[in-house]
């Protein structure tokens, strides 16, 4: 055997000096080929590439296949697997308690669209600074394939039961309700999903990202609009786009009039190249029109559908102190004796 000493190649690190390994989680227990695993990979890539310190990330989820996935990325971050459909409230409390946390919530189409639709609605209204991902496969995987509220009209279960009800478009709903970053992507589109996630990290406000994520076990059959085959054929990107992180000083030049540039909260830039010349991602009306038109054609418009970069987030609206509430010292929390005396005197 050779005994020649070999100097190992320097390990690749991100801008805060961490290796990609730090951003990984435990081994997935989801099915092989599940779209959710691909999304976890993109989350790992996005947080690594953006150089986010995992110790300031809070991962949150509800219940279901999707909601198991936060265990499979950012293993050194704190995570909270809440109860079914109620992750938004837990996230709200956590992110108010410590405004320095970067929150990422993972939900599913059932967890969001059925049991959790109430909390989803109010989360969107509040514009809590949270990346909210729906891993959307149109069915309940963990309980063996029942319809979810995003299932296609006419889709059929193995026992022959047909879904008669129209799906909820979570993106249209989020735009209507006040989310300030709304996107749709496909778990198989590595490049687009990664760019969207990185942009979401740069935004401060609610980022609602619906990711079509085929269920290989229960909903990947022919005729399902949530199958790999269908999604690949009917994905209608709103145009290619670039994301320029605030720490990369790249100047990008485009033909005037073909690009919309949006500066995000952290200084990063989102550059969207228009396809049809009419779509403006800062217009709610444009976004809703595109969603309805593409749905009518049986297609999914993907990309960043809507951005409102300057609307104050919920923590700002509540005028909370700059220091995390969770670490305020007692002298800031307990008013002096004079305050109690004053109150008591008013009650005599």
């Amino acid at each position: 055997m050779s005994s020649t000493a070999v100097t190992p190649p320097p390990k690749k690190t991100n801008r805060i000096g961490l290796e990609t390994q730090v951003y990984r989680g435990s081994k997935t227990t989801l099915c092989a080929g599940c779209g959710h695993n691909a999304i976890s990979e993109r989350i790992i890539d996005a947080f690594y590439e953006m150089g986010v310190d995992p110790r300031r990330v809070a991962k949150l989820s509800g219940i279901g296949c999707s909601s198991k996935s936060p265990a499979y990325f950012l293993g050194s971050s704190h995570g909270f697997n809440a109860v079914h459909g109620r992750m938004p409230s837990v996230a709200t409390g956590a992110l108010l308690a410590n405004r320095d946390l970067l929150g990422i919530g993972v939900s599913g189409d059932g967890d969001t669209g059925a049991i959790g639709i109430g909390q989803f609605v109010h989360l969107m209204r509040r514009n809590l600074p949270l990346i909210y991902i729906i891993e959307d496969n149109g069915c309940y995987g963990l309980t063996k394939g029942q319809f979810s509220p995003t299932a296609d009209v006419g889709s059929k279960l193995k026992n022959g039961v047909v879904n008669d009800l129209p799906p909820i478009d979570t993106c249209a709903l989020a735009i209507e309700l006040g989310a300030t970053f709304v996107a749709r992507s496909f778990s198989g589109d590595k490049k687009q999903l990664l760019a969207i996630l990185k942009a979401a990290i740069g935004h401060r406000g609610t980022c609602m990202i619906d990711v079509l994520s085929p269920c290989v076990t229960f909903n990947d059959h022919e005729g399902s609009t949530k199958s790999y085959a269908y999604a690949k054929d009917h994905d209608e990107p709103l145009g290619s786009f670039n994301f320029v992180p605030f720490f990369e000083d790249i100047s990008v030049e485009y033909e005037p009039g073909t690009t919309v540039e949006v500066t995000l909260h952290d200084g990063s830039r989102l550059l969207l190249h228009k396809v049809d010349g009419g779509f403006d991602p800062t217009s709610k009306m444009d976004a809703l029109r595109v969603l309805h038109e593409s749905a009518a054609r049986g297609e999914f418009a993907t990309g960043v559908l809507y951005v409102e970069p300057n609307k104050p987030d919920f923590v700002t609206v509540l005028n909370v102190v700059d220091e995390p509430l969770a670490s305020l010292p007692l002298e800031k929390l307990r008013p002096p004796k004079a305050a109690l005396d004053e109150i008591m005197a008013s009650l005599t």
Partner: peptide, 19 residues
């Protein structure tokens, strides 16, 4: 909150984070 379920959910999220 939007209901009592959410109210307690917020309390738990905050308590978990140290509030």
């Amino acid at each position: 909150a939007e209901d009592e379920i959410a109210a307690l959910g917020m309390v738990l999220g905050a308590g978990w984070a140290g509030a």
